[in-house]
């Protein structure tokens, strides 16, 4: 299998890696860079547990090849907290009880974070629409919606 040398920026830090053509971005992040906050929950791009931002856009990193991230910016859950200060979306999930088992949470937060960068005052329906590609089995979404609203209010 062919290998490629790729360079990408993850949470602001540059990384170079030798990867097989078929290596998925999620496996690069989790197993090579050991950023295990991004999770895997399905094989069909439905659950969204693996959501990261690629050049600022939320993508499901189980359906992106590592080579496709060459030369690009990746942001994962580990990049949300800056200088010891939680991002409002993280605070929102904690304050509003927007998580239980925590498994979908990183993907859910990345989707919420991306929504708030393009829409600072989303309605409940807009929030639900935005997170509809992220499955949660524990919370029933009510408090996730509130968590995103909390972050939106905090950022005003």
């Amino acid at each position: 299998m062919a290998t490629h040398t790729i360079t990408l920026t993850v949470n602001g830090a540059a990384h170079t890696a030798q990867v097989e053509s078929r290596l998925l971005l999620v496996h690069l992040l989790r197993e090579v860079l050991r950023l295990t906050g991004t999770h895997i929950g399905c094989d069909t791009t439905h659950c969204g547990a693996c959501t990261v931002l690629l050049d600022g856009e939320p993508v499901k990193s189980c359906t992106v090849l590592a080579v496709q991230a060459d030369g690009r910016q990746v942001m994962t859950v580990e990049g949300l907290e800056k200088d010891g200060k939680l991002d409002p979306i993280q605070e929102g999930f904690m304050q509003e009880h927007g998580l239980q088992c925590g498994y979908c949470t990183p993907g859910m937060m990345m989707t919420g974070y991306a929504l708030l960068t393009r829409n600072t005052k989303p309605s409940e329906r807009e929030i639900r629409q935005a997170i509809s590609g992220n499955l949660c089995r524990c919370t029933g979404y009510v408090n996730i919606v509130k968590a995103v609203q909390y972050a939106a209010a905090k950022q005003q």
Binding site: R30, L35, H39, V77, E78, L86, Q90, M94, G102, M109
Partner: peptide
């Protein structure tokens, strides 16, 4: 009270089985 579990989960610092190498 807020959950004691949350600080690790909201930072992506939980330890699930597949996270262990």
């Amino acid at each position: 009270i807020k959950r004691k579990e949350d600080p690790r989960f909201i930072r992506g610092k939980g330890t699930y089985v597949d996270d262990i190498q």
